[in-house]
Amino acid sequence: MTEQMHEIELRVNGVLRTATVPSRRLLSDCLRHDLGLTGTHVGCEHGVCGACTVQIDGRPMRSCLMFAVSARGHEITTVEGLADPDGSMHAVQQAFRECHGLQCGFCTPGFLTVIAAYLRDHPDPTEAEAREAIGGNLCRCTGYQNIVKAVLRAARILNEGTDAPVAEEAPR
């Protein structure tokens, strides 16, 4: 049986992209292998780890739990699309670097897409809220402590453009 193929148009990071995909092509595979946007990572393919998270119309979703063909006509933002068009880092990216919020960097794109969307709706989270905001993403390297710190730091950059460092998180 020859597989049913679809010509699809996706708007990815503001750019109209086209691909020819079979029905079952996962959005994660389409982004990575058809469009060459390998910043989105695949860690479990059953929706638990969060490494593949991208924003669909601004909302973070698991790209391993969507078919590319279902994403037709939607606005997709991947980690490659977070930075400004001039190439300067998004506040979350900057904060991750400043706060050592990543080690191997494999889970990082999923965290960045989640946090960037979160801070749009919750510009001034508490520590506890910052921790909760990243509660659906797995990281095996960092122990999350510096990721929490990076969420708060990014919020501060976005709100005030200040360079003041974020205080250490208090024990819960």
Binding site: V79, E80, Q93, R97, G105, P109
Partner: peptide
């Protein structure tokens, strides 16, 4: 010091095996 490798990793420009 902030890490040199972060410059690519936070931008989605890391190159992992399956990339």
């Amino acid at each position: 010091l902030p890490r040199k490798e972060d410059l690519r990793l936070v931008m989605g420009e890391g190159r992992f095996l399956d990339d």
